[in-house]
Simulated assay, not measured.
Amino acid sequence: MSYPTAHAPSYWQKTCQRVLDGFYPRVCRHCEVRLPDEAPRQGVSAWFCDPCQDELTAIEAPYCSVCGEAFSGAMTQAFRCSNCSGRRLAYDFAVAGYKITSPLREVIHRYKYGRDLSLRAAVADLMLPALNDPRLAAEDLTQWLLVPVPLHITRRIWRGFNQSWELCRQISRSTGIPAAQPLTRQVRTESQAHLQRRKRLANLKGAFALSRPFPWLPRQDLQGRNILLVDDVLTTGATAHECAKVLKLEARVEKVVVITAARG
């Protein structure tokens, strides 16, 4: 994998951080216990105390080569899980940093539904391990494009932000991978959370389209580009499939890889 990492903080930045820590001590974003002064500024340890970190479950091989769902046991070659077998999915593959267990579930819920924008950096840091997937190892990811799953405008107004776009912006700052919003959600669909897989797919038909900044301007040219489609959680993959289908059929992108903080 090839992308620039954040520069080490300067002396003055470190000094300012120490001063701020004196007024606003850093705490675990799940249980709110105070973090030690020597806790790092990036990565999981920057946001969670040791006991909460122990409750996080990183996704490691073996996992489905398409949707990224983790499995136990020994696998000697790439495989498709039963949910992906026989399905023609528009995205190439999906990878996630962690399983959707506590405390990550609660943090993402507060970020999205509690509208706690301060949690975006924590969630974005939990997504970075997904970029270490072996299938991305030979890629210069700075030539790829971070693209968020879009929200319908009414939901975005209610929430105050699109959580996926905020994650794109945060990851872009950390890695140098550019970000853009070429997709729009043109239909306000029923919430996917409590729908079965078949109903999720039907619920999303025609929900997404390519966007343009103004009606008289052309759409962004994405032909031949490689896309990192960003969302907070992947469950059935229905939303990612519909977004990837628009990107591939209409924008003519080359590849779509889904990255999320958590796998449901």
Rank of each mutant, 00 (worst) to 15 (best):
H109L: 07
W158R: 11
Q170H: 12
V95D: 04
R120L: 00
R169N: 08
N83D: 15
E139A: 13
F79L: 03
D92H: 15
A90K: 13
N83F: 09
I157R: 15
R169G: 07
T101G: 08
P103H: 11
Y113H: 14
D125T: 02
E166T: 05
H109R: 08
P129R: 06
K99Q: 14
P134H: 10
L89C: 10
T154K: 12
L89R: 15
Y113W: 12
M127I: 14
D140N: 08
E139L: 00
Q143G: 04
W158V: 05
S85T: 15
L119N: 08
N83I: 11
R80W: 11
F93C: 03
I153P: 00
C81K: 08
R105G: 04
L117W: 09
V149E: 03
N162R: 04
R173G: 08
A138T: 12
L145F: 05
P134V: 05
A122E: 02
P129M: 05
A124M: 05
D125V: 01
A122Y: 09
E106I: 05
A78D: 15
E166F: 05
D133L: 04
A138L: 05
A90D: 12
Y91D: 08
A138I: 00
M127Y: 10
S82D: 14
I100P: 03
A121P: 04
G86C: 10
D92A: 14
F93V: 12
A122Q: 03
R88S: 14
L117R: 15
T101I: 03
Y113M: 05
S172E: 09
S172K: 06
Y98F: 15
I108H: 08
I100Y: 13
D116L: 07
S164D: 01
L167P: 07
T142N: 07
L136F: 06
P148V: 04
A94P: 03
T142L: 00
L131H: 00
A124Y: 03
A138M: 04
D92K: 12
R87C: 10
D92W: 10
R115A: 09
T175D: 01
L136Y: 09
V147S: 02
Y111I: 07
Q143M: 01
R169A: 11
L141I: 01
I171T: 09
Q163Y: 07
A130R: 02
Y91I: 13
L141Q: 02
Q143I: 00
G114F: 02
K112A: 01
M127H: 10
